[in-house]
């Protein structure tokens, strides 16, 4: 029983990370049809800069972590918005080329990060409490899992509120469904593209800082690893669906944890099998719009 609880909550924590990456990917894809390979780099640069600033202000404390998070969110949002504005926008509606540019950006930036911060992981200091465990139903749960879950829930709530309550949110939801019809109502949908990139980048930025808490290190490849799982999550959840991304994040991460524990470390493979199964039964994903 305690093992199951541990696996569940750890899975939820990992799922939280996946969601922070996948939410942006899914929204960006849903609205603009852009597959953003640079999303992992948004995460990595935010993790590095968040860590650099946070440790200078106050290393290994809550205050330092909060600073890291704020810096990470800001960096993620700014870098993402700039990417959209400077690179993606020039290739308006040419989805393949847009994806290619993000591929180039991801290759170049990962190499750059390696050049600046080296190829080895850099271990980070965390607030005392996050390194401890809490006992729930007999299971000793690492405390950082709770932080991750809480942050992901807040982000999910925040994005949902934004989508439901603001005019831009309305435009984005409509655009995910039928972008052409939005422009045919006299709305310049491109303005919301930058916004969606910024939101996705901010979530990924927070994800970067939290990933460094979860793994205990920052590295140039932090984003690349998470990105692949986030891709899988987005496809399983249904491209363009935020709720789908949330549900699939949790399903994938929990499945992965259980398979790693009970099936001899085969979590990654089981996830791919799950992806194949979803595609066979429901090609548009759990909650995706009809392709």
């Amino acid at each position: 029983m305690s093992t199951i609880v541990l696996l569940l909550i750890t899975g939820l924590g990992l799922g939280a990370l996946y969601f922070l990456v996948a939410s942006g990917l899914s929204l960006i894809y849903g609205l603009m049809g852009v597959l953003n390979f640079a999303h992992g780099s948004f995460l990595t640069i935010s993790a590095f800069l968040g860590w650099e600033v946070g440790r200078r202000v106050s290393d290994g404390t809550w205050w330092g972590l909060a600073i890291s998070a704020i810096v990470g969110i800001a960096v993620g949002a700014i870098v993402a918005a700039l990417t959209e504005y400077l690179l993606i926008r020039r290739l308006y509606e040419r989805h393949i080329e847009q994806a290619l540019v993000t591929v180039g950006l991801s290759l170049a930036t990962v190499a750059l990060f390696e050049g600046i911060w080296g190829t080895d992981p850099i271990y980070t200091a965390r607030p005392e409490w996050l390194t401890q465990t809490t006992e729930i139903l007999g299971a000793k749960i690492p405390n950082d899992r709770f932080l991750l879950i809480a942050c992901a829930v807040i982000v999910l709530g925040g994005i949902v509120l934004f989508l439901k309550r603001t005019r831009y949110g309305l435009i984005i939801r409509a655009g995910v469904e039928n972008r052409q019809m939005v422009t045919a109502l006299g709305i310049d949908v491109r303005r919301s593209f930058t916004l969606v990139f910024a939101i996705g980048g901010a979530a990924a930025g927070l994800g970067g800082v939290l990933a460094s808490v979860y793994y205990g290190y920052v590295s140039a490849h932090l984003g690349s690893v998470l990105l692949i799982f986030a891709f899988i999550v987005t496809v399983i959840g249904g491209l363009g669906s935020l709720t789908g991304a949330a549900v699939a994040s949790v399903l994938v991460a929990v499945l992965q944890q259980f398979a790693n524990y009970y099936l001899g470390g085969t979590g990654d493979l089981v996830v791919v099998v799950a992806l194949a199964a979803v595609l066979l039964i429901r090609p548009r994903g759990l909650m995706g719009k009809i392709a």
Binding site: A99, V235, L239
Partner: peptide
């Protein structure tokens, strides 16, 4: 046969996932 059930960008992601599985298997 599996990946071609979807098109465009989804196809790209699905092939990526399979390749990733292969890569993981080789490293394991």
């Amino acid at each position: 046969a599996l990946a071609l059930r979807v098109t465009g960008i989804s196809f790209a992601m699905v092939t990526l996932a399979f390749a990733q599985a292969g890569s993981v298997l080789i490293r394991r």
